[in-house]
Amino acid sequence: MNDPFKIFGVARRFDIDLVEFAKIHRVLSRALHPDKYAQAGASERRAALEKAASVNEAWRVLRSPVRRAEALFALAGVAVGENHEPKPGVEFLMEMLEEREALAEARAAKDLAKVRALGSAMAARLAETEAKLASGFAKSFAPTGPTGPEPAAAELAMVVPFLGQLRFYTRFLDEVSLIEEEND
């Protein structure tokens, strides 16, 4: 895959400043957008179109915490995705099920305040997990870190379960916005 961090000209890390990255995206778009090359030759128009598309693709990956984490794992050579991630523990699943049940009840009761409360509690957990991922990645990608040439991947594999958690939380929050949508 294309390294989205390389396209943005920044070091690999998980905790990024989205405002700063949005600016880089805009700066790159200004430089590459096909509109700027409307009068150019076919080869430049094509090259601009391709580069602009890859900049947009990189931005799509970087702005989403789940996709950003997936990209960082892939770049570090750690396999993630279907069949590659450890099964979550029973305790965690029990909690998720209970939260989802509570959300389903609040939805049935049209209790929007409750839905929002469950949503913000989940958002807080999501932020915690993001912090854990950030420090995990920071250790592996730190240029002067304690890791030698190879152990980075092994160490990083320990962080993989947090990606799974991130997806569960994200799923929950998607559900929250769906409920808000139907109650608008």
Binding site: R100, R167, F168, R171
Partner: peptide, 13 residues
Amino acid sequence: GLVGAPACGDVMR
């Protein structure tokens, strides 16, 4: 039985 799919966030009991 309680299972979940980390790749998509589904949970099943």
